[in-house]
Nucleic acid binder design. Structure first.
Lengths: 220, 220
DNA sequence: GTCTATACAAGGATAGAC
DNA sequence: GTCTATCCTTGTATAGAC
């Protein structure tokens, strides 16, 4: 890994865990094991560094989502892949960065803060949302053509509903460390799917869920 | 309004719209029309100011939620009040603060950033989530007793589902300025209710929704 | 490409007059 | 209770040697 890449990875980690303003170039330099001014050889400013971080992460995320949904065929599986992919990406960011750390990460917080501060980033983030909205639209339309998804749903509204559920989950899991996200997300996805699906609710009821396996934190 | 209150309100507004780190005491002083050192007569530090802002907003929010759900009787209405109350509180914060401004606000972002930075605030925010979880639990249990809500749902999981949907919506509406939240939230609430409700889906289908009235942003 | 040294600005905070 | 003046620290950024 080149120095430039190291700087980028460390910055991303710090921006994500401590926030942009609260991260200083000294902290970055220390963790990369270089001196502060060396950063300026690779990046022209701290802002520049943030921009590159956002581009890096969004490009990767978009790519992974696109890849994950083409791996599945059945609309239900494709939607599940979409759902899982974003949650996984967020949960596994520390290992993705090749800089394992155990601090909780919240992509949404990072995107929102960046979009709110820099209009250039706001545009890029908007683009991301447009892109994932298209993915969802495709899946929904295909599901409707195959009579798996209700015709009565309003597509655009459903898209917002799906995205907001995913983002809400990420936000919540960031605050509630005691929630074992892995054990509940499958069920939450099933709930989502059954609200879209044409399947008879009776058959859904037959699949009895073993709630004893759902290891919610004691807080609840 | 006393000077102390003014400082608190202006700070809250700036923290919410620009972020804590990006807000300086000079900015606050300017907007209150006092000099920077005067702030220190009322608050011992910038951190102190943030803490008071969080307490103020959470106390208010909790009070409003508690009030709104006791105003309704039917579990469906109570849940609707809960849903509406949090969204309204977020949307109307600018007027609540008696300092009208048009910048978008995202309470969740503010809470998460604060909780991530200061453990004392993290505790208070946790308390808030526990409290609203209790409210929801009451409503759900009551709904089940009256046979309005399915017995098959998993209460704790449903609570997370509901909270994350609301928080996700706030997050999304912060990024997508072109979404007309007011026109879609009713429908999103109906979706939520029908996923919990014992009502026959057929009767739900009969209520045809006039989608032409749902003024989604052109972005979608 | 990385370093030392340093400039420059701005932020939080205090002292003490009025 | 509010002000002026000022301190101190830290942050971003640059100049220029190696």
């Amino acid at each position: 890994m080149t120095t430039k890449d190291k700087i980028l990875m460390v910055s991303l980690k710090l921006f994500l865990t401590q926030g942009y303003d609260n991260t200083t170039l000294s902290m970055i330099a220390d963790e990369v094991n270089i001196k502060k001014p060396s950063i300026y050889y690779h990046f022209k400013s701290k802002e520049d560094l943030l921009f590159d971080c956002i581009y890096l992460i969004l490009n990767n995320l978009e790519e992974q989502i696109a890849h994950s949904i083409t791996n599945s065929v059945h609309p239900k599986d494709r939607l599940a892949s979409f759902f899982e992919c974003i949650l996984d990406f967020n949960a596994n960011l520390s290992t993705i960065l090749e800089y394992d750390f155990d601090a909780p990460v919240n992509l949404i917080l990072f995107f929102q803060m960046s979009a709110n501060r820099f209009s250039e980033l706001s545009d890029r983030i908007d683009e991301y949302y447009k892109k994932i909205s298209c993915f969802l639209k495709e899946i929904i339309v295909e599901g409707q053509q195959k009579c798996l998804i209700k015709d009565t749903i309003h597509t655009d509204l459903t898209i917002i509903d799906i995205i907001s559920r995913i983002e809400g989950l990420i936000a919540i899991s960031f605050v509630y460390k005691s929630i074992d996200m892995n054990s509940i997300r499958k069920q939450l996805y099933e709930n989502l799917w059954s609200s879209l699906s044409n399947e008879n609710n009776l058959s859904a009821k037959k699949k009895l869920i073993d709630y004893s396996k759902i290891g919610l934190g004691r807080k609840w």
